[in-house]
Design a protein around this nucleic acid. Sequence first.
RNA 1: GGGCCCGUAGCCCAGCACGGAUCAGGGCGUCAGCCUCCGAAGCUGAAGCGCGAAAGCUCAGAGACCGUGGGUUCGAAUCCCACCGGGCCCGCCA
Length: 632
Amino acid sequence: MKFLEFQAEVEEVLAGALHELGYKKAVADVDLPPNDSYGDLASAVPIRLAKETGKKPGDIAVEIGSKAMELAKKSKYVGAVVPHKGGYVNFSLSYPRFLVDSVASITASNDLGAVRERGEVVAIEHTNVNPNKALHIGHVRNLVLGDSLVRVMRYLGQQVQALNYVDDSGAQVADIVVGFRFLGFPDEAPPGVKYDVYCGDQVYTKVTKAYEQDPTLKAKQSLVLREIEKGEGEISEYTRKIVRRILAAQLSTCWRLGASYDLLNWESQIVHSGMWEKIFESLKKMKYVKFQTEGDNKGCWVIPDPDTGEEKVVVRSDGTAVYVAKDIPYAAWKVGVIGDPFGYEEYSKDQPGGVLYSTTMDGKKGKVRFGGADLAVSVIDTRQSYLQRIVAKVLEEFREGASRKYLHRSYEVVSLSKKTASQLGFEIEGEFAHMSGRKGLYVNADTVLDKLKERAKVETKKRNLSEAEGWVSDVAEAVAVAALRYELLKQDPDKMIVFDLDDALKFQGDTGPYLMYTYARARRILGKTEGKPRVDAGSAAKLTKPQERALGKKMSMLDISANDAGEFLSPKEVARYAHELAVAFNDFYESVPVNQEPDPELRDARLALVDASSRVLAEAMRLIGVPVRDRI
RNA sequence: GGGCCCGUAGCCCAGCACGGAUCAGGGCGUCAGCCUCCGAAGCUGAAGCGCGAAAGCUCAGAGACCGUGGGUUCGAAUCCCACCGGGCCCGCCA
């Protein structure tokens, strides 16, 4: 996109000016000025030069400015160069030309900033919901962060593997098997209740309660766990079936939210792959793991934590591996420090985003390959930061630099507001409560989506009285997804979200529906016009209103925010950009007539601006998984 | 005891990685407006006056000493240190 080209030109011009004036060591860096009246890009280099040269910042700005202006004559997009007495050199776009090229690249060449060349292989793991319950809003935060990152990385040209890890052999799965096999819960959910909701809301919470009342039941859990571990036998088969059923129900919610995956990684297969044994043997040879013969960890294999000087048990005294020891081989497989033991088969073709594969252990390799990525990103909440650091440290032992290729994208949890907790029947002490699957204190994703959809239906009907029910329902569903995804993405991952159900049911202001609405507004103009979107140097020169210039500039900056999103693993940058672009559009919309414009040339130029900016908006929305509709 | 994260208007958040320009940007809520004009899921506007030495108070009505205190710097919301408040992690659970 064009703004980065402009920036590159400015940097070149500035560097040239600095060089010619003898400021050899000065760095030619530019930034967006705080205010449009200062131009489109600015450099504070004179202020920094003032100190070492003893000259006044304003004088240096004048000196650099006039030299830069001279050099800028040959450039494509640099218009004016204006020194500021405070010690800044301000650069303005050569506007008509910039706009014409910008519109042309967006509409004619469909250049929305995506990098075309093949990038690195990036494995992104997200969602990872235990297959014993339905997704709650905390899981949705994970999914939205991960899925948006997948989209952004693909946009940036990376070859992404979207991975979803299924913990099919853990205690949480065992718990519901205990419920079905030993506590007599019916296999089938009551009519109208989704299977994963049934397992989570009814079976899991009640089994947890039953443990408290009858401690001997815990023995049943370990029995089930041992059976699952064996990988064969009736209980193991039964568990397999249950897990697949719950997973199918969970995936339908994930797909509903617009997420899709390339591969399912089963914990049971990682355990049975023998990868851990290999790694463990190597760690022993490297003397990285130690066998403790005394102390609290007597009889265990431990690894040292270099940060705290403490040690972490990886193999229990009974010889079984702990949780983190299952994560290590998975991580090693992702970044290719261990051979690939898996085959891959199609798991589902129903997925909206394309074929979903599953690992297999039957030795057949198939056509597709996974693992061995250049970069692995794990979207996991912040409570696991410590363990993720250990995993990275272990990888580093196998290959220098591996810990820089294995990144933990942590995020804070979603908790519930006092009010929402109280609506669920929980009276709490503070202002918010952490969710708990065991206690049944959570809000399911589908519940929220359904409520959002219900509201959206009312709003959509009001505006589209003659539309059929099916159309309204489709739009309402899209609005619901937009609202939820945007709500959970826009906030910084490091900040806890206190979720309030009533507050979430809003479609005004800085929300996903606002983006959808803005896009629909833009398409409406194009749908109603007698003109044709087109702009040339002559008509572009007529687009002099500040709202037109601001919109034209903003629409050329999607790739900047996407680059940031990729670099910092923070897709909210794109969400923020989408919102800014929408604001710029609405500002334009309110103050600049398009189809009412009597001058056809000017009208068409404005149409071109509307067309191009709405395409960019749609692309930004796509990157964060906010649905795009021509009308809502 | 050790470690990680958060603290910006009544409320919720941007800005912090790379320190810079006059008013530190949005949103929610509040008040007042705008649909004979391309979609109102939108947009526009919103602060002082009086009394008092002052804290403050009255009528009002929009809102911010960037948690506090030091330091670095020509310049700090941004970097460093300490402290305060909140959350989380440090298990032979996952």
